[in-house]
Amino acid sequence: MNFSTQIFHLIKKEFILEWRQRYALSGILLYVLATVFIVYSSFVRVPDTAWNSTFWIIILFASVNAIAKSFIGESGNRTLYYYSLMNPYAVILSKMIYNTLLLLILCLLCYAAFSFIAGNPVQNTGLFYLILFLGGTGFSITFTFISAIAAKSKNNATLMAILSFPIIIPILMTLINLSANALGMIKNTAYTNDILILIAIDLILVGMALILFPFLWRD
């Protein structure tokens, strides 16, 4: 199998597994809806600043929950099976691509739920979708790689949080800054700079994850 077919089959496998255990996916989606309701009932009228930060914090926690299982969920025997068949880069890339797609769905659902329940203060919708895409990608890259690290340990849920939260902060801060722009809270015409920073961070993290993963996966 060449590299791209490996990635294709691995992503297909992720979708099939997800479809077979639908409770995981629906659990995450319900999680988003429930937290949005909690936010709404605690604020009643959500101010723009709170909208912006709670939106990203909900996405942050939902993505940690959604992605934490991506390596932890794999059983030891099946992992061994991949290792004998697959290229390590294909394994990590397929997980990242799948998780990005999952997070994009999650972001869109969160956005829809927020707009429906708490109102939609977004003024520059195109920019906001771009931010959602870049944010989803950044979260997916970081959390996928950290979950590969955390999966090696026994107390992986704690490790997932303490390892990933400090590292995700540059991405999260840039996202909140950018989406404040899209919400019209601050007028910063030079937001392309922030977008470039976000893309640069994403690329650096993907590069590091690809370089380091082969050392990580084989016990």
């Binding site: 590292i167 801060m173 840039t174 922030d194 961070i201 590091m208 380091l212 050392f215």
Partner: peptide, 22 residues
């Protein structure tokens, strides 16, 4: 070792890139 290298790469972002944003 894997995490240490990953952490070192994020260090300049925390200390130099993000403080420039605000």
């Amino acid at each position: 070792a894997v995490y240490n290298i990953f952490a070192f790469v994020t260090l300049p972002m925390l200390l130099f890139v993000i403080p420039r944003l605000t």
